[in-house]
Amino acid sequence: MQNIVKEKKNNSFTKKNLLITAGIILGFLVVMYLAEGNLLNRQYKSLIVPIGIYIILAVSLNLTTGFLGELSLGHAGFMAIGAYTGALITLNLNMPEAVEFIIALIVGGFIAAIFGVLIGVPVLRLKGDYLAIVTLAFNEIIRSIINFLGITGGAMGLSKIPRYTNYIWVYILVVLTIVIITNLVNSRHGRAISAIRDNYVAAESIGLKVSKYKVMAFVIAAFFAGIAGVLYGHNLSVLKPADFDYNKSIEILVIVVLGGMGSVRGSVIAAAVLTILPEVLRAADDFRMLLYAVVLIAMMLFNSSGIRTKLEESGKLPKLPKLTRNRAK
């Protein structure tokens, strides 16, 4: 059985990878054309970077929420750690731009990942609702500590962060994120993660180390959230603790839910749609939060209604992994 799987993988290896590489290059040309050409006005051009940042955030949150099946409400917290670490590095180092920024990205990601371990390990004992609340609690703890510390500028935040983030950096990192997460999800480890979501007890009983995989998913998601945070800070050039509250985490969650939990492609599309939509509907800016709320409720009602199953069976909608009922009876 394993041989067949391996063989199949090897066959599709060259052709598929060539196509993917071509797609990545084509995508870059399209983004470059959009960013440099006259097709878009400045307002829309300024959206390219946020879209990329949200794609990274959504794809990484999808790993914990969609693939591992645990709701994490603390993604903005990891993002904050990355953003502040990165900003402090570029503000204090005096090195060439590219070197400084690469260091900021890597260190920002790693510090966020370390916090991912710190949070992931205790969180292992919990699941479902409790886990969601603890991640929310961690988000608030991180935010109030950032608010309290002197080095992070307290409630005033940090300003004059160099604007290093541009569409090239964002594009490279978006592609890296998507490639790494998709490969992970399709790998042996990714299947283990999905197995834990589908049936926790069964996964454990066939010898999967549930704790290990849970921490793994948390840490990887935190790492990418940290990187997205670094990009975010160097795009806005100012950071305030209030930017990373619970609402930010929900915003990312909305993207994941709209795109489909367990679908990387869906997250990418939803990130673009939900970033562009409020700009297009400028007049309806007040309705943005309302829109998010309605999206969350409507998607959940739609997913568990019969319509979704019918559409999936007739092939009109891609099939998403079914979440298991792990509610106490």
Binding site: M261, M289, R327
Partner: peptide
Amino acid sequence: APSLAVLITAIGMSFL
């Protein structure tokens, strides 16, 4: 529905 779906709906309701 799974608990995750209910939790997300409840968050949506709070936002609404």
